[in-house]
């Protein structure tokens, strides 16, 4: 099963990954991270295709992708 892993405390909550994810499965968390932002997260990981588009648009290299 493909999956993405977020380096939560590096995320600045810019939402570019969420906007560009073709599956629309990325959302910002309710809680805040060490930097004070709402970090990106995925609830329905089973819908991830491992396309890595989220990782390629992330300006902060927060996302690691497995396929």
């Amino acid at each position: 099963m493909p999956k993405v892993e977020f380096n939560v405390d590096r995320c600045k909550g810019c939402e570019l990954c969420a906007v560009f994810c073709p599956q629309k499965i990325i959302k910002l968390s309710e809680g805040i991270n060490k930097l004070g932002y709402h970090p990106a997260t995925v609830k329905e990981m089973e819908k991830c295709t491992g396309c890595a588009i989220c990782a390629r648009v992330c300006p902060d290299c927060v996302i690691k992708v497995y396929k």
Partner: peptide, 11 residues
């Protein structure tokens, strides 16, 4: 399952 995207070494 293999890693298909990660931080480049030079970053």
């Amino acid at each position: 399952m293999k890693v298909v995207f990660e931080r480049p070494r030079a970053l």
